[in-house]
């Protein structure tokens, strides 16, 4: 009795599954799952959710955002890379994918993905307490050079996080060792900015949008941004290039991607759609409201950006002694 029931159920299930598979004219023929390796409510989640909403409008199928968190991003990134490459499971990948494998935490690298479009890049900044004596980044740099190693304390994210590597790169460009400034690990940029305002730190190297509320409140000042050009939302903050002639291009990237070997028709459909999403009034308004950097690159461009970041971050991690063998 039980076996008959089960067979009946199996048959019914197979029939239900098979019917949409028979007719699959073009992608997307059914809802697409968008994986987010970071928790709901964070910046990456917000960017993906608005992009998914707008993609739905462009392509006429629901794009459902699913947060697959855990393992400091390893779980979600791995899930995107290992999804079946049929175009119905895509996701958002972040700069961490160019760091996790250097730390020996996963085998997955940017090469396991098909990048489809970069939607955002936030470069690191340099922020000090509002009452700090340093009026510009050159004064701060001189003071750091003159101080004994470990006297200056900086923060912005956890040990070995993206902003820690930005600091290491900056120190390296000044000819100092990566640990000349002591890194105080924090649980993200917001607690670091609070500690900066409470007088517990000398400076932070998180991105300017993350520091924005404290800057607006007059509790902190941003001395420089580590980017090739000034940010449109923060045009009064000079770049490190123009003040100290130091070129650092690493930043926090957000890229829509799928598993490797995506069919060409999927790429052909989604890449122009992502460009339209990026150019849409809603997306531009949203990103400007949050202060997130509007940087676009198509699939190939995003792939190059990932390759460059992978090398730069790997070098910085080796210099800071954070990479595993």
């Amino acid at each position: 009795m039980v076996s008959i029931d089960r067979r009946g159920l199996l048959g019914a299930g197979a029939a239900l599954l098979a019917s949409p598979a028979l007719a699959q004219p073009r992608w997307p023929a059914r809802p697409v799952q968008m994986l987010c390796p970071w928790a709901a409510g964070g910046g990456t989640d917000a960017v993906l959710r608005i992009a998914a909403t707008l993609l739905e409008r462009e392509l006429g199928q629901p794009f459902n955002v699913v947060n697959r968190t855990g393992g400091s991003g390893v779980v979600g990134h791995t899930a995107i890379a290992q999804a079946s490459p049929d175009g119905y499971t895509l996701g958002i990948i972040t700069s961490e994918i160019c760091m996790l494998h250097w730390q020996g935490l996963t085998e997955v690298t940017y090469k396991n993905f098909t990048p489809l479009g970069q939607l955002n890049n936030d470069p690191p900044g340099i922020q000090v307490n509002a009452s700090s004596a340093y009026q510009n980044v050159q004064q701060l740099a001189d003071a750091i050079k003159a101080s004994p190693a470990g006297k200056f304390k900086a923060s912005g994210t956890g040990q070995g996080g993206i902003w820690h590597l930005a600091l290491a790169s900056w120190l390296g460009a000044m000819g100092l060792k990566a640990d000349h400034v002591r890194w105080v690990p924090s649980n993200g940029a917001a607690p670091a900015m609070q500690d900066l305002a409470a007088g517990g730190l000398d400076f932070t190297t998180c991105s300017v949008p993350e520091a924005r509320a404290m800057l607006d409140a007059g509790r902190a000042r941003s001395l420089a941004v580590m980017a090739p050009a000034r940010l449109s939302a923060f045009a009064n903050i000079p770049t490190l290039k123009e003040t100290m002639n130091i070129d650092i291009t690493a930043g926090a990237m957000r890229i829509i991607a799928g598993p490797a070997n995506l069919p060409a028709e999927v790429k052909a459909a989604i890449e122009p759609a992502l460009k339209k999403v990026f150019d849409s009034k809603e997306y531009q308004e949203f990103m400007n409201a949050r202060g997130f950097g509007l940087v676009y690159a198509d699939g190939a461009g995003a792939g190059q950006a990932l390759a460059a970041a992978d090398k730069a971050l790997g070098d910085a991690m080796k210099a800071a002694g954070l990479a595993k063998a």
Binding site: L9, L10, A12, G13, A14, L16, L17, Q33, N64
Partner: peptide
């Protein structure tokens, strides 16, 4: 709540 519960052999209608 949009939780992606798996369909398996018996998808919900």
């Amino acid at each position: 709540l949009r939780v992606p519960l798996p369909d398996g052999v018996l998808p919900a209608p």
